[in-house]
Design a protein around this nucleic acid. Structure first.
Lengths: 242, 242
DNA sequence: GGTTCGGCTTAACCATTGTTATCCTGCATC
DNA sequence: GATGCAGGATAACAATGGTTAAGCCGAACC
């Protein structure tokens, strides 16, 4: 199949594409696939031969710990994200990508990316940009981990996910579907599942959120962003010439 | 001046360069500058016009927190690191780069990088790679933050820095100069300075390290890597075709 | 050589987070 | 509708980390 519009919109939100560039992107062929919750989308391997884009649902990069059998989640991906594009230039991925809830993705072969990057420098810089935005999110997670306490830390994640989902049109009205268990949130934020539960209760009691099942609703956006000290600058949502 | 050898060696450690590519890199002109401890090397700004490479010493990316006047360090850089290359493709950097101890750097203009990336796709992918290795380090810091307790967490940082310094020839024999205060370590790991001190004492009492002033010596490499669950895979020190 | 200062060290006490255990609820299954 | 089960909620207690305060030590300065 042809490359979906999602990623093209992700790029166009941040820079201008020429007609030729848009046509060149549309020439990319992809393989689409659906996954059930918990399925492995990308296995940890020595050298990857393709990378994947989210079409719907969410996925997570998980790092399995040597001893404790537990795992840490270092990234969450929403529709439009080029999940493991960094695998195109890296020797090996130290992580696995799994579906959080039902998810659809499309795979692009690295051969095609190599051809594209050999001839389209501006598009190459935009692909590169998408991996550096990922890194900016990593840094913000580090800042949040170092500076926020449990409730505020959880609140920061909720704010980020709403902002990212909203920016690709996958959420409105401060509501969204969050297909994560409290155990998963514990693996993201580095707390015990019980403590995540305490943080959820705290946010509820402050009147900031409503949360049942997989549906999250933010009741007080100014309040929760203030608690989380959330500033969306790092998501790089500006349009520029790159 | 011409681009220093440091970064070229960083690349050659990971992929092969043709003679033409090596010559093209040597054509890059740079501006060298020295900084004293604490100096701002790269100020947070809307659009950067150049990026910097470490020649000697260390630097840190700091994120200033809105309220608490405190700051978080999300990355440390050693000689050979292209510190803020991601600023070449990102709209704005959410952080400042400062010198940790005396440091020498060289600046490369984005105009030159744009010219280079317009014509040298393989070199572009290698520059891209260097930013994705940064991101891999960010992820490992997230894993460490989520899964390790204070002593092990500090130990992990000490192992990583030795490995990185050693890989560029800036440290041998499990010793190195670490121009960081305990306060800085607190800003990296997200603990209070007092708790960093407890962790240092713990590592000393376990006979894993000797540490006085800015000189760190790792006495028991197998012991400390086991405590920190340190596996250097994520630093991507393999040679491959990219 | 005394003074000052910043950073390291330690201790006592308090706050946050982890652990273990139990119960509740909703859903799937039969 | 009884059963089993997974995930969420809660409580009691233990461990980890933060805060405040004070002493120590070496380098820089006069």
């Amino acid at each position: 199949m042809a490359l979906s519009d999602y990623f093209i919109r992700f790029l166009e939100r941040r820079d201008k594409l020429s007609d030729e560039e848009r046509a060149r992107l549309a020439d990319i062929t992809t393989e689409r696939k659906s996954f059930a919750s918990g399925d492995v989308i990308v296995a940890r391997e020595v050298v990857a031969e393709r990378s994947c884009l989210m079409l719907s649902g969410m996925s997570a990069r998980i790092h399995v710990l040597p001893r404790s059998k537990d795992r840490v989640i270092t990234a969450l991906h929403v529709p439009g994200d080029f999940v493991d594009l960094h695998g195109f230039v890296l020797a090996g991925l130290a992580h696995t990508v799994i579906a959080m809830g039902p998810a659809e993705v499309e795979f692009v072969s690295h051969d095609q990316l190599r051809e594209l990057t050999n001839e389209w420098p501006h598009l190459t810089r935009l692909l590169w940009m998408s991996t550096t935005i990922d890194a900016a999110v990593h840094r913000q997670w580090l800042v949040a981990a170092a500076s926020l306490r449990s409730s505020a830390h959880l609140a920061h994640l909720l704010c980020e996910l709403y902002t990212r989902l909203n920016s690709v049109g996958a959420a409105q009205d401060h509501r969204y579907i969050l297909p994560l268990l409290q155990r998963d949130l514990a693996n993201i934020l580095g707390y015990s599942p019980i403590h995540i539960n305490r943080a959820v209760r705290d946010l509820r009691e402050r009147g900031l959120i409503r949360w049942s099942g997989t549906e999250v609703q933010i009741l007080d956006w100014p309040g929760i962003t203030a608690l989380a000290q959330f500033r969306p600058d790092y998501l790089d949502l500006e349009q520029l010439n790159r």
